[in-house]
Nucleic acid binder design. Structure first.
Lengths: 230, 230
DNA sequence: TCCTTACCTTGACTTAAATCAAAAAAAATG
DNA sequence: CATTTTTTTTGATTTAAGTCAAGGTAAGGA
């Protein structure tokens, strides 16, 4: 319990809350351990609560009619997911699966709503988190709709570099096939674009590790999105 | 003031709130009247509050580098918009413009946040609204990423029919050019797909009014998205 | 280490949709 | 009602990216 409180206090979603509320949250939270590949919930399941990633990685995805998987999001610590249907009181709109061995916190719906309705500051935190998420989604739409695949890939690499403390060499936490799905394309196309980027001396690829040789060029590509043949 | 209270009470965002809070909201709200084409805010503006549409229509859009406008959303009464940056405390992430003469309510940020932090039920309402919005966005991404233009158009028509109380003839509230942008395509393509749908006896088009002759077929198209040439 | 399985790459081809250009239709303006 | 202006349609062409098919590479298990 003591342990759980410490973990919860470190989650941005709950940052700035008084100890008392952290403890109340800890009291209702349940720890879940998952193996790589294990399903967390399935599209259509009634949402009985939401999750926070403590360690590992989780993917949120949809299946198309042809059976192809389209990844909407990948969450790592300390991000929450599945919060949306908790407030609309509906089913989960997509599937969630652990893509590496993971440890999650689960917050049951009823108990959590009770806490929120008694704690305006928790409610405001939740509002900020949802708002932020909304913004991310809008950015994603913008990318899918306004930009072509090379630009999306370039943005993703730039984002990864930021996340991994501006290193010049970033490491993919997912397979290239999964990355293709996340970028709204297919492995073949991703592969071709990566090799074009190598030809243009923008990057050097080595398995899952990608060296960003020309950050400036990568940023330019993420904006104007043109990558000529050679 | 009395007037404003009544309007506010009818907005779903504020439904179920006690009279007292409705009056407090009315006290901080400002009415704004806009002409067709007038700008409401611009991408990058500091978000000093959010809006609720009382009458008319508002479009939320982004500009691409080539100067093409990409519509993200169209809001009519009684929908709120611009709430997101109010909670993240940032700038507006897109442009907003009235597409017909409109009347809006404006809620200033500081005063509204104060109200929310004092009223858990208002906070829960906001959470539900944001969650719902998030869900819509996710659905939009799903459409843009997973389906082709004919399927997106078919879904849109089916949605319109629902919104307009399941009439067999729906009326577009925006020009076809704007609809194309909303669907993530261009006028030429939209025009071609519309005529294909006519050829397939799915619809009959008459300016902005579209008769849905084969609802079943339209639903099928929105799912599997194939529309053969003839 | 070998072998099986999953992942990644390359090539030839197809296709949906964008672009360019121009005409036709509809709507707004004087 | 004539005439601009905007919106919509049609046609020819290009292009980005998907599909199909086949190798290649890397990785995990026996």
């Amino acid at each position: 319990m003591e342990n759980t409180s410490k973990i919860i206090a470190a989650v941005p979603l709950f940052s700035g809350l008084p100890d008392e509320q952290i403890n109340e949250l800890a009291a209702i939270a349940k720890v879940k351990n998952l193996d790589r590949g294990e399903a967390i919930f399935t599209e259509g399941d009634v949402a009985d609560g939401f999750y926070v990633v403590i360690s590992g990685k989780v993917k949120i995805y949809k299946m198309s009619l042809e059976g192809k998987e389209k990844i909407l999001h990948i969450f790592g610590p300390p991000e929450p997911f599945g919060e949306v249907p908790v407030f609309t009181g509906k089913q989960f709109p997509a599937h969630a699966q652990a893509i590496s061995n993971s440890r999650l916190l689960f917050f049951p719906r009823e108990a959590f709503i009770k806490l929120v309705s008694e704690n305006p500051s928790l409610a405001l935190n939740m509002l900020a988190v949802l708002s932020f998420r909304l913004r991310q989604f809008a950015a994603q739409i913008e990318h899918l709709a306004l930009k072509e695949v090379p630009a999306r890939l370039a943005s993703y690499l730039a984002l990864l570099s930021e996340e991994q403390s501006n290193r010049r060499t970033v490491t993919l936490s997912i397979s290239k096939g999964q990355l293709a799905s996340l970028l709204g394309t297919i492995p073949e196309t991703l592969s071709r674009i990566l090799s074009k980027m190598v030809q243009h001396n923008l990057i050097t690829v080595n398995g899952r590790s990608i060296q960003l040789d020309d950050l400036e060029g990568i940023h330019a590509l993420s904006e104007n999105g043109k990558l000529l043949d050679s």
